[in-house]
Design a protein around this nucleic acid. Structure first.
Lengths: 115, 115
DNA sequence: CCGCATCCAACTGGATACTG
DNA sequence: CAGTATCCAGTTGGATGCGG
């Protein structure tokens, strides 16, 4: 990661895909909530106030298609839906932890007041 | 990161800002190239083939405004411009490394062929 | 070499209302 | 509870061309 610059070793598609998937609007926040233990749709909703139904539902579908989460309908009344991280999704924990630490280091008072 | 879910401990603005900044289109890739040693505008251009001038210039301005990179005009003919990571930008190395490893683990053959 | 200006089609996502 | 439907303004970013 710190050797002399090699012109050949460029444009990494896997990393590219990964960083823009977790960085897509709300996705990173949703994944973090799931890592923190949220599992129900309504938990996610109330955990992230400015997130609308439309966005949450859309992102969860995308994350499911990416193999990051599973969706399980619990047949009760009223219906509940449980979302759970897959191994792949849970494996992001290290990344999200390290990035959270970075954020705390450089935005201890929130993003509007950088260090 | 793995304790029982606490409804209060939600919506982290610093992390939210961070993840969507590095996840914005091309930003993560540009930061990675800078970490790998790229410094000139033209290096970044040729390192990332599908990245246009417009996008590269725009992202570099945003990253500069975020305090992630510095921009230095070298007064030669023709003009060169050097981009360098700030401490804040360099401090992202751990995150990008860990995420790259995740990507290699789950997309060893590229994002179109997940494990 | 390093951009910026313009045009423009496509996508995004907020508001609001409604369903099983 | 857990979504979907519709509308629509705003943003995005590719293409192309020009300028210091």
């Amino acid at each position: 990661m710190s050797e002399p610059y090699d012109k050949g070793d460029t444009f990494c598609p896997s990393y590219h895909h990964a960083v823009e998937m977790i960085g897509k609007r709300w996705s990173g926040v949703i994944l973090r909530e799931l890592l923190l233990g949220a599992s129900r749709y309504s938990q996610l909703r109330s955990a992230i106030p400015s997130l609308t139904d439309k966005m949450l539902a859309a992102r969860l579908q995308e994350l499911e298609a990416e193999g990051m989460v599973t969706r399980t309908v619990v047949d009760s009344v009223p219906v509940r839906v449980e979302y759970a991280l897959t191994d792949k999704g849970r494996d992001l924990e290290a990344t999200i932890t390290v990035l959270s630490e970075w954020a705390d280091r450089w935005y201890p008072d929130g993003p509007d007041r950088p260090v």
